[in-house]
Simulated scan of single mutants.
Amino acid sequence: MKIAKTLGRAVAMATLSMSFATGSIAGEVNIGFTGPLSGGAALYGENTLSGLRMAADEINAEGGIDLNGEKTTINMVSLDDRYSPAQAATNAKRLKQESNVPAVFTPHSGGTFALQDFNEKDDFLVMSYTSVPAVTEKGNTLTLRIPPTFDGYVRMFTEYAQEHHGKKLGLAGATHEYAKIWASMIEKEWKNEGGTIVSDNPMDYNKSADFFTGVSRVIAADPDVMFVGGASDPTGLVVQQARQMGFDGSFILMDQAKLDEVALAAGGVEMLEGAIGVVPLSVYDTEAAKGFIERYQARYDKMPGSEAAYNYLALHALVEAMDATDSTDPKVIRAAIGDALKNMDSSKNPYGVTAVTENGGFMTEATLATVKDGEIVRITME
């Protein structure tokens, strides 16, 4: 009997040690997040994470999911990468080794590309919140791109800006990888449509709060339109300082920056008169979008942006795929994600995403909004 008890304690200790080694416990699935939670893009990272936390809490409040007959809850494990691709890679390694995550959410292209160097080998899904087309063109079998690609935005924004505001563009975007890709694509499209680039002065939106020197160089070339964009808060400061220096033209905001959030940081929506950007979630009038906004505001006391809404629906879809397949295997989840998007409760899907491309992109319509007479207005392009 004594031998049996001793053996039992040894088995129990071995099981407990294995649990600590994998970073998980019975009845719980860890989901990873690496993103900027400090520095100039901290608000952007927190907004992304807020949607994930809200989804996880809703899932858990409803009893979690059933995995092989066992009720299972979702635990978000978040790490700060300060917008650094190298730190994102380190974080993902840690999340896999210590928390045994089947998926890691990351809200920037640099982090996505860094994770794609080893995620198939290490066996975890990259849940990428970036609109860079190359993310799903590389053939990585364990990557899902959550928002639409920005090439559609580039075409629409260029067409609208040249038709309504003029042909001279000044480039004043950010210096991180995503912004540089955006700038190169809009420069090419702008020239293809007959416009000219009159100035090019990228700035570090993540480290600076005073953009006077960079902005003054751009507006000295007398552009009709300024291309700006990083996270919403620093983008708002760039807009504010450009207006203070007398720039009265239009702005093109890359899709990372949201018109309503930028307006708050810039000192009012009137500062953005004529600006062009993606349609903010606040302008959507579907029942799913309005319901999400109401629940989000009740929890966080602020208007959600697209990063919160897209990641919220992506986690719900991810967990729906786990529930439907009784599996946390990344390959199994990836194969089931399309059906999960179709079958999930519409109230959990504020953008109405119902399909995924063969190479892993959530299928969503690209949109355009502008500021007219102090209001953000959705524009339908023919």
Rank of each mutant, 00 (worst) to 15 (best):
A88H: 09
T112N: 13
L272Y: 11
I186D: 04
R53Y: 06
E137H: 14
L341Q: 00
A220K: 14
Y312H: 08
M363D: 12
D233H: 15
I219V: 13
A369K: 08
E163V: 06
T357F: 01
T328S: 14
F212Y: 11
F33Y: 15
V319D: 01
R295P: 08
D222F: 02
G229K: 01
P202D: 09
L171D: 01
M156T: 00
G246F: 01
S250H: 10
A26N: 14
K290V: 13
G32V: 04
T34D: 13
M185W: 12
A324K: 11
D301A: 13
E46I: 15
V225G: 04
A289L: 06
A12C: 05
K167Q: 14
V218W: 03
A161F: 07
D285V: 10
V77C: 08
S109N: 12
A309T: 01
I337Y: 03
Q241K: 04
M344A: 06
K348G: 09
L144N: 07
M127G: 01
E187W: 04
G249A: 08
A317C: 10
V154Q: 00
L318T: 12
V371M: 11
I181N: 02
I25V: 15
Y44L: 14
G277W: 09
T357V: 00
G194D: 07
R378L: 08
H316N: 14
T6F: 00
F150A: 05
D123S: 15
A321L: 08
K348C: 10
M271P: 03
E120G: 10
F211K: 03
Q162D: 02
P107S: 14
Q162P: 00
D200L: 03
G64T: 13
S347V: 07
G338D: 11
V11L: 11
T286P: 00
L43W: 09
G64W: 08
L95K: 02
N47L: 10
N206Y: 14
P102L: 12
D329T: 05
S282A: 15
A86P: 03
K258W: 05
T106W: 13
G249V: 09
P280H: 09
F105G: 10
G8R: 02
G40E: 06
V198L: 06
V228D: 00
H108C: 12
L7S: 06
N119E: 09
F150G: 01
G40H: 09
L115Q: 03
P330R: 04
D200P: 00
V132H: 08
N343F: 05
F362Y: 14
D285A: 11
E187F: 04
E382K: 13
D345F: 08
E193Y: 04
N60I: 10
M344L: 15
V269G: 08
A335M: 02
V218F: 06
A4Y: 00
V377E: 15
S131N: 10
I59C: 07
D80M: 03
M13E: 05
A366C: 10
D373S: 15
V104C: 11
Y153N: 10
A220F: 03
D117K: 15
V218L: 07
G305K: 07
E187L: 07
L52T: 08
D204S: 12
Q244Y: 00
S327N: 05
